[in-house]
Amino acid sequence: MADKNEVDVIDGKQLQDKYLREEMMPHIFCNGCGLGNVLDYVLWAVEKEGLDLDKTVFLSGIGCSSRIPGYINADALHTTHGRALAFATGVKMANPDLNVIVFTGDGDCIGIGGNHFIHALRRNLDITVIAVNNYIYGMTGGQVAPTTPEGHIGTTAPYGNIEPPFDMCEMAKAAGATYVARWPVFRPHQPINSIREGIRNKGLSFIEMMSPCTTAYGRRNRFRKIEDLWAFYEDKTILIEEYDKIDRFGTEEEKEELDDKIKIGVFKRSTRKPLEERYRDLLEEFK
């Protein structure tokens, strides 16, 4: 592995050679799925930040997104549904020298793992959380998720979802993450920069990736082709800076349109001592 690490990566092929486990291929992701993009962006961020993969642990829960760590040639803990952040808390507290990156999905993170999510945010360990939001339970075949937009179809909401969806970034901001961002996968540069910033940030960084699921979500919601889903996200999203501008100075008409939009961008940058540092301080008192 050491010799691979010395190569300067300049293209995607080299990135794959350096970081992926060949023996795990072919991967399980469907055509048009955004998870490959997310994996790609994380690896570029890891490369650009120069993370030592011998000292980096990737964790995940259950769901499509949680299969990502399997493809990365590093220590990885593919855990139980919704619990990745609780496992990550153990890893980071037990060995703060390790870089910890957690992959989770929308159902995994804010559905079954909601409580662990809130408390991981509150504790603010120095870890990076990549939540891949496909607005549906993809792995199990398209059941409605806590993030599914109102009116959209899931196999367990055949007449349209009547529940209001959850905004994971709002929760992350409120419960204490120190870095919060959301990007659709079809914009490569911003996510890579956000993940890099998240890795550098001393505290819990939460990055939501809006990722298309054509198989379990798109099909049932009249996005027949991947392009339709990308176009929908493009139309639906608005940069936070733009949003704030309209919110302040826009006309009533423009403001009304905001209700239907999903904000993207970097929502929060702040500083708060991570839990493992606080624990280190406590240990110092007894030395």
Partner: peptide, 25 residues
């Protein structure tokens, strides 16, 4: 010099010790 953490529930308690165990603890 050891670590103690009170988790949010017993599901997380068990998860945290498994995570810690994988660092050799």
């Amino acid at each position: 010099g050891g670590v103690n953490i009170q988790m949010e529930d017993e599901i997380a308690s068990m998860a945290s010790i498994i995570g810690a165990s994988w660092t050799g603890a």
